[in-house]
Computed example of a mutant assay.
Amino acid sequence: MDKNAQAIQYMKDNEYEKAAELFNELIEENPGDPVGFVNFGNLLLHINDFVRAERFFKKAIELDEKTATAYYGLGNLYYEQEEYDRAEKNYQRAIELGLAESDVYFMLGMIFQQKEQFKLALPYLLRAVELSPDDYEIQFQYGLSLAQAEYIEEADKAFKEVLKKNPEHSDAHYNSGVISLLHGDAETALHHFEESLRIQPDHVLAANGKKNIEDILKQE
Rank of each mutant, 00 (worst) to 15 (best):
N39L: 13
A100S: 12
G98N: 07
Y78L: 00
L22V: 10
D64T: 05
L97I: 09
Y72P: 08
G41M: 08
F56E: 13
Q92V: 11
N30Q: 04
R86L: 04
L22T: 03
A53E: 07
F57C: 07
L97A: 10
F23T: 01
V104S: 02
A53W: 08
E62Q: 14
D85C: 03
S102E: 15
G32P: 05
G41S: 05
E62C: 12
L45G: 01
G73V: 09
T67F: 15
K89I: 01
K66S: 06
Y72N: 05
D103V: 04
Y84T: 02
E80Y: 12
F40D: 06
V104Q: 04
E54Y: 03
G98L: 09
E25R: 09
F50L: 02
D85V: 00
T67L: 14
K89H: 07
R55A: 15
T67M: 15
R86P: 06
E101L: 06
P34I: 08
E88C: 02
E28Y: 10
E28W: 09
K58P: 13
E80C: 01
L44S: 02
T67P: 01
I47V: 15
D33Y: 13
P34Y: 10
N30D: 08
T69F: 05
I61M: 09
L43M: 11
R52D: 12
G75F: 03
A68E: 14
T67C: 11
L63G: 01
Y84A: 03
N90L: 02
G41P: 05
D33R: 08
A87R: 01
A60W: 11
V35Q: 11
N39W: 15
Y78V: 01
A87Q: 06
P31F: 01
Q92D: 14
Q81D: 06
D33K: 09
E82T: 03
I47R: 07
D64F: 10
